[in-house]
């Protein structure tokens, strides 16, 4: 579920989260954006909204895996840590397909 900045919104995108201000829901989850909605959202002065679809990752996959190796470098010989790392690695790889 990527967060898309207001400039990059396109008609046909679907809200992955309700858009609310304070406690008031303005557009419900699943709303399909048309030009009117996009213009109104543009007037609200927010930086972006969540739409359906795979998330765009902030860093490339290789870098994400390098950082993962780095985080685990001191504990791999400890019980269960190798298994935890493997599961997290599979999860991270899954974010890039």
């Amino acid at each position: 579920m990527p967060k898309v900045s207001v400039e990059d919104l396109k008609t046909g995108m679907k809200l992955a989260k309700p858009l609310s201000r304070g406690n008031m829901v303005l557009l419900g989850e699943g709303t399909v954006l048309n030009e009117t909605w996009i213009a109104r959202i543009g007037d609200m002065g927010i930086d972006g909204i969540f739409v359906d679809g795979p998330s765009e990752q902030p860093i490339p996959k290789q870098e994400a895996i390098r950082q993962l190796d780095e985080r685990f470098r001191n504990v791999l010989s400890e019980p269960y840590m190798e298994r935890i790392k493997k599961i997290v690695k599979e999860h991270i790889e899954g974010l890039y397909v």
Partner: peptide, 11 residues
């Protein structure tokens, strides 16, 4: 920036 080892009994 590191992961601490998990306590085996808790795990």
């Amino acid at each position: 920036l590191v992961v601490p080892s998990v306590h085996p009994a808790a795990w």
